[in-house]
Design a binder for these strands. Structure first.
Lengths: 219, 219
DNA sequence: CTTTTTTAAATAGGAGTCCTATCATAATAC
DNA sequence: GTATTATGATAGGACTCCTATTTAAAAAAG
């Protein structure tokens, strides 16, 4: 075992995530360039496309993990390109609400058949579902640690009923559409998301983290 | 099922990876700033710390997924800070070899107890091992698609014997240290890495991708 | 052996990404 | 009212990334 355990598993995971992320970032840069966008502008645009009502500058900054002046700069660039517009918030004259324009909505959305997507497609369907579940756990952990702002994911939704069909392939249930669904359908930014109360959310989180011991890998 | 399957699983995975990556990137920026480093400089430094013999500018660029002039700029900044030095390659007078200085080696390496690391620690041990395995598959897929250059990972190593102990908790075997090991010990950048031949590598890859159906999640 | 082509890196110039600090203004507290 | 706080815009600076060009050495062609 000499030399095999010098690096902690956690460091290796960070390394792997970092490496895949760096490849994704490079790809994003190349894929959005033809549309005249930068990576940050693309991220803002994608966030806004999922929220037609618009978002405040500050909220955008929180979601992207950058400071407010950084967002202001990117938003100004997007405004110049006619893809977003800014308007004063009627509820607070200090605030600015950023919305996508109809032109941006009409754009093809660039369904990027990227290499990263191809790599994901190489995984088995079960492995993809398992990866999604793990990612959602990670993202929720970050939210609980205040590292990133709450997002409209299933685990924090009042319509979410985790693991209520323990033996089924689709163990969870969405009370909004009243239908069961599996890990592969877990959402990261659902338009129908309803904020759950704190106790309910904690219950959801626990039930989601520790389901029945169906798919444990190694004891 | 209304509204639950409008987004493909793959898109959701991309979204989740993107979100976690963005949080990690923001954290890296904050964690390396006190040491007077930028994220790119930190990435170069970490890569070089694992290779005391140094690397060419071009190779660094490939690993980081950026162009050569970008690396030159960051290397110059690192040189100013006394953390790397450049020397001509004896084998090719056009090339520059970048090496870490003894000062950089002596630095504390900043074992960043980051929030991302904490989120990973929230996962069960089995889930962490499974995630590492998935990440390595993804990275190897990118390598096969020429999206990123080959790296010193187990799957491409001539000492790697995947799944030779099918029923054990540590199914793989490293012929270099002559010891069995499990998914949690898989390496992303092993100093003892020996480049395997193409047929051997293909065999490794296949055996690694499709082991015995031990830990499949849902059929 | 020259000449030509290719290759490695540096340089120049430009757009974009981040930051901190500061400023104007609106909402809120006293 | 005045003081404090919160939202964004602006200014200035370091860094990141790109493409295109230049310099110089190596490799290929004649």
């Amino acid at each position: 075992m000499v030399g095999m355990e010098t690096t902690a598993l956690r460091d290796r995971l960070m390394d792997g995530l970092d490496r895949f992320a760096s490849a994704m970032r490079a790809e994003v840069r190349r894929s959005v360039a033809p549309r005249g966008l930068s990576p940050a502008q693309d991220a803002i645009l994608r966030m806004l496309l999922a929220r037609p009502a618009g978002l405040r500058v500050r909220v955008l900054a929180g979601h992207l993990g950058v400071r407010q002046p950084t967002v202001t700069g990117s938003v100004i660039a997007l405004e110049r390109k006619g893809l977003v517009r800014r308007q004063a918030d009627p509820a607070d004259a200090r605030a600015t609400i950023v919305k996508v324009t109809p032109e941006a909505l009409a754009q093809p959305t660039a369904a990027a058949p990227s290499l990263a997507a191809a790599a994901l497609a190489d995984l088995s369907d079960a492995e993809q579902a398992s990866l999604l579940k793990t990612l959602i756990k990670l993202i929720r952990s970050l939210q609980l640690r205040q590292a990133i702002p709450p997002q409209r994911i299933c685990v924090t939704c009042k319509y979410f009923r985790p693991n209520v069909h323990p033996e089924a392939a689709e163990p969870h249930h969405c009370a909004f559409v009243d239908a069961p669904f599996g890990n592969r359908a877990l959402r990261l930014d659902c338009a129908e998301h309803g904020q759950a109360g704190a106790p309910e959310m904690a219950r959801n989180w626990n039930a989601f983290m520790t389901p029945r011991p169906r798919q444990e890998v190694q004891p």
